[in-house]
């Protein structure tokens, strides 16, 4: 059993995935990373958090990555886990997530990478609810963008400035 993040990193390191951050050289869009509790603290620990950062920096450019605090195994849960998205306690879930949203906003990044479905749904909802303007994206979207092969219909979560980049 393994996580695909370890494979993303391996494939980039050994040259199987020829990613490039050139698309963001002039745009200089800033990205932060939410460490999913399930993947990092609860499963693979800090080593996988490093692999995620390695991949993200390769695809958006090191200078465009902004660290969130606290992070890695010390990260705060976004509030999307444990079944909360289906539990019906919506206002409590959003109250829970307010702290995470503030941590995201403190980075100044316009994009938050949330490579976990529960986290992605929760942070996307939080961002809309609290009207932050932060976009919530999967890592796979950015990898394809950096490979120059992200299709038109695969950009649901990107902001308007990225709707046509590399098409």
């Amino acid at each position: 059993m393994d996580s695909i993040f370890n494979y993303y990193a391996k494939w980039i390191r050994n040259g199987d995935l020829k990613v490039s951050a050139d698309w963001n050289k002039d745009l200089k869009l800033k990205f932060t990373l939410h460490d999913p509790c399930q993947t990092v603290r609860k499963s693979y620990g800090d080593p996988i958090a490093e692999e995620m950062r390695y991949v993200l920096k390769k695809v958006v450019g090191e200078e465009n990555f902004v660290e969130m605090h606290p992070n890695r195994s010390n990260n705060y849960c976004c509030g999307g886990g444990g079944g909360s998205l289906q539990s019906g306690f919506v206002s409590e879930r959003r109250e829970y997530g307010k702290l995470k949203m503030e941590q995201i906003q403190a980075t100044g990044a316009t994009y938050c990478v949330a490579p976990c479905h529960n986290c992605h749904s929760q942070i996307h909802d939080l961002s809309e609810h609290y009207k932050t303007g932060v976009h919530t994206v999967h890592l796979w979207t950015l990898i394809c963008l950096s490979l120059g092969c992200l299709g038109e219909n695969e950009r649901t979560y990107l902001g308007p400035e990225l709707k046509e980049v590399g098409l």
Partner: peptide, 9 residues
């Protein structure tokens, strides 16, 4: 128990 996400922080 349903508000907590069992995140282990």
């Amino acid at each position: 128990v349903w508000f907590c996400s069992m995140c282990q922080r």
